[in-house]
Amino acid sequence: MLDFTYNRGMLNLIRSLLAPAANKTTAGQLAEKFGLELRGDPNAIVRGVAPIADARAGQLAFYSTERNSAAFKILPIEVLKNTRATVILVQPEQAEFAPAGATLLVTPSPRGNIVKILGEIYREKPRFGISRDAIVERGVFFRNRRSTYVGQFATIERGAVIEPDVKIYPYAYIGRNVTLGRGTIVQTGAHIENATIGAECVINSGAVIGKDGFGYTRQNGHNIFIPHVGRVVLGDRVSVGSNTCIDRGAMTDTVVGDGTKIDNLCQIAHGCVIGKECFIAGQTGMAGGCVIGDRALLAGQVGLANGVHIGNDAEVGAHSGVFRTVDDGTRAMGYPAVPGMEFFRQYAWLKKQSKN
């Protein structure tokens, strides 16, 4: 039996080889680009980003006492005092606790700015050009062919409209008369037909958009398929997770509003209308004709019955089965879903009965 032992240096080397490739930058460049207050060396090199407890020389980390939600954990101040990060993104009131010699980027919102910095440092190098192995039919309209990327064995059928800066990765399928908005990314193996996709959307691997829905009628004891003639319309900045399906409408369109984020393995049935800036977590399933308001949040494995309405700013807890309207700004949970306080009263009562 072989005994493999690694010292800390070897482990760090392995981690650096497996880590995502970062674009080297400096603290001064980041401060200028994102409007941050610089305290320290503007030429301090940033080669990557790491959690503050694990950061090493050459890396950027952040420390924050912001509580944007109950899920955010505030680390002990000793973590900031003992970090080895070269550059630290920090709030003004915490700057005095940073190690001597560290370069600081000071901002009231480190959590908000770390998102921008991650996007800058780990930005993928642009891809351009259409692979010789791609299948692009005659009649495809490229608004700016030179800014477009189409990978190996991707298929684009005639009548499709491809706006500037679109990236279509290998083995993706773009059907007839599909429109892809400016800057949209279609990942490997995604399938899109009968759809209009807005600008700066991300369609992840294995997603299927625009296929017929599960629409049938029973006649004389037989299940008869209802032809679907609607489309799928995604707004701008919509994200569709891997292996999520969004069905086309039967006679009306299935619509997803601007900024909505849909997780992996979700089912959006024919004719659903989803508002703007919603979050829909993994394995959520919607039956046909559901209407979701703006900024709604559906947690994991939520199920919605036909035609259910979810109000603006409403929340539905994980594993809930929703059969009736959830009003604006309210929270529902359970099976069948009930208002949040009612659910907790029922739970408390059952817990009390189990002890008797």
Rank of each mutant, 00 (worst) to 15 (best):
M1H: 14
D3C: 09
T5F: 11
Y6K: 11
L11M: 11
L11F: 02
L13I: 03
L17E: 11
L18T: 12
L18C: 12
P20C: 11
Q29E: 15
L30M: 07
A31V: 08
A31F: 08
G35Q: 08
R39P: 01
R39S: 14
A44G: 02
I45V: 15
G58V: 12
A61N: 05
F62H: 07
F72H: 12
K73M: 11
I74H: 10
I74R: 12
P76L: 06
P76T: 02
I77D: 07
I77S: 11
L80F: 06
N82G: 02
T83W: 06
I88L: 06
P92Y: 05
P92W: 01
A95G: 11
F97I: 03
L105G: 05
I114M: 15
V115G: 12
V115Q: 08
V115L: 13
V115A: 14
L118V: 15
E120Q: 14
R123L: 15
K125I: 11
F128H: 14
I135F: 14
F142H: 04
R143H: 10
R145P: 01
R146C: 00
S147G: 04
V150K: 09
G151V: 03
A160D: 05
P164C: 01
D165S: 02
P170Q: 04
I174R: 00
L180N: 07
G181K: 02
A190S: 11
A195G: 10
T196S: 14
I197F: 12
V202W: 10
I209R: 08
G213W: 10
G215M: 08
Y216G: 06
G221D: 02
G221E: 03
N223R: 03
N223P: 00
I224R: 04
H228P: 02
V232W: 03
V233I: 15
R237W: 02
S242W: 01
D247L: 05
G249H: 04
D253N: 15
D253Y: 09
G257E: 06
T260C: 09
T260H: 10
L265R: 04
I268C: 12
A269P: 03
G271S: 12
C272L: 01
I274A: 08
I274E: 02
I274L: 09
A281F: 02
Q283C: 14
T284Y: 04
G285N: 05
M286I: 10
A287L: 07
V291P: 01
I292R: 04
I292V: 13
A296T: 10
L297W: 09
L298V: 01
V302R: 00
V302H: 00
G303Q: 01
N312F: 00
D313S: 03
G317Y: 02
G317F: 00
S320G: 00
F323S: 07
R324F: 00
D327Q: 08
D327T: 09
G329W: 05
M333R: 08
P336C: 07
P339A: 11
G340I: 13
M341I: 13
F343V: 08
F344R: 12
R345D: 08
Y347R: 13
W349P: 00
W349I: 14
L350F: 14
K355G: 10
